[in-house]
Design a protein around this nucleic acid. Structure first.
Lengths: 238, 238
DNA sequence: GAAATAGTGTCTATCAGACATTATGGC
DNA sequence: GCCATAATGTCTGATAGACACTATTTC
């Protein structure tokens, strides 16, 4: 009934399994996503998310597979990486029934070391809910979902710090939020949230300049836990 | 490089792909999860989540696969169904590299038609973050993650209505929340949220009893959109 | 000192928790 | 009338938005 015979051999055809990555960064005042140009059919020459088949020899688990592919494409070792969702259907790859587990990563633009050929691997700016080009497979949908998740999480967590280098100022952090959300934020509200969460550690004495008064430098203190902001249904005390 | 030859045949071994279901209901004043007893090795006779291999002949996509398995085990056609997360690694199934896409479902206990043998398919109460028994594979972890997601979503959405039959009273709905969250809720706060969200439609005239004053009957109005409660970082108006 | 940007303080609106109060049924 | 439960109202505290104000730098 479960399609497995006594010798533990599968008696039915398997779908293919891939891992795809939606790698975000903020460059040139824009949210951008890393795409690779396909060299083979189907969708040859179209842009697509970096990713590929799970290699059961090399990859111990799904996340290791995602990290391997991330390292191959972006050169980044330990970014923020979060599983987004899985997509699988008969038709999304014309060759065969394929499922993909999508991860999204946030990296600082200064941490990126792209492989040589910009025709093959390049950053593409996000406009609204996707990129300007038509993409291979269902990758436009995957990107739209990833953007929605990223924007939603910005509103109740601190993950945007992962889009900045280790040391940054509060105006820089606020700018990241505004670029990703596509809307200006109230300065004092923003700063209140950040300070109340106690996630940032001021780097004493140091400063940096824009054009007026320099801003205090900070470092993200705690990668251990994500901060979630309150105001939801709370447990009743008594 | 991508392991596919020109005839579009894969030249490397594939991992297996399954879909597993965490089916929740509230019965006998407890949050319960549906488990099936395994009839084959590995973990023969152990309890496990309902699920199984994706059948690329029958299943058009992952969600269809989940709905098919849900219908097979619980008899329920159109419950609340949401993709939770995917798990895949070399070791989680001793037979081979296996990935599973986990869905969680919420169904009303009165909608359930279990197949005959209770020794094979049965409800198990949730205590804290899991069930009392040891489970097959990594299913205890999958259940713990599903419980965490369910509890988190209760605090900012209305999905708990899917744990009740179509017609219910507000005290019944509140009781569901309290059972799942494991803590009492403040009545007036609870009712304010529910009414502000305008998700419930009073069924006029009708009532039902406990022991004192009868409660108004309601029906869940809108399956179209989930209600999310406010108080998070908001866009700046100007 | 003017301009520009960083950073703080104050007021208000909104909403959740606490808890009292009223409403409606059975007995 | 009494009890039990349903439903509502009021007060308080916490926090986000708005916006004014102060602080610190360059020129």
């Amino acid at each position: 009934m479960n399609g497995v015979n006594t010798a533990n051999e599968l008696t039915f055809p398997l779908p293919a399994l891939t891992v795809d990555l939606v790698i975000f960064t903020v460059r040139e005042e824009q949210l951008q996503v890393l795409l690779v140009r396909r060299a083979n059919a189907p969708f040859c020459d179209a842009w697509a998310l970096p990713g590929g088949y799970v290699d059961i020899e090399r990859d111990d688990d799904l996340e290791a597979c995602a990290r391997r592919k991330l390292k191959e494409k972006s050169g980044v070792d330990a970014p923020y990486l979060e599983q987004l969702k899985s997509y699988g259907s008969k038709g999304r790859d014309p060759r065969r029934w394929t499922a993909t587990v999508v991860y999204f990563a946030l990296i600082a633009s200064d941490a990126i070391v792209l492989g040589g050929n910009q025709r093959q691997v390049a950053w593409h700016p996000i406009v609204d809910h996707g990129v300007a080009q038509a993409l291979a497979f269902d990758h436009a949908e995957l990107i739209a979902d990833a953007i929605a998740r990223l924007r939603a999480k910005l509103e109740y967590t601190h993950i945007a710090v992962h889009l900045l280098p280790e040391v940054f100022t509060l105006p820089e952090l606020q700018r990241i939020y505004e670029i990703v959300l596509g809307a200006p934020l109230e300065k004092s509200s923003f700063r209140r949230r950040v300070s109340q969460a106690e996630m940032l550690e001021p780097l004493p004495g140091q400063r940096r300049e824009g054009d007026g008064r320099p801003a205090q430098l900070y470092r993200f203190r705690s990668y251990r836990r994500q901060t979630f902001f309150p105001r939801s249904l709370q447990r009743h005390a008594r």
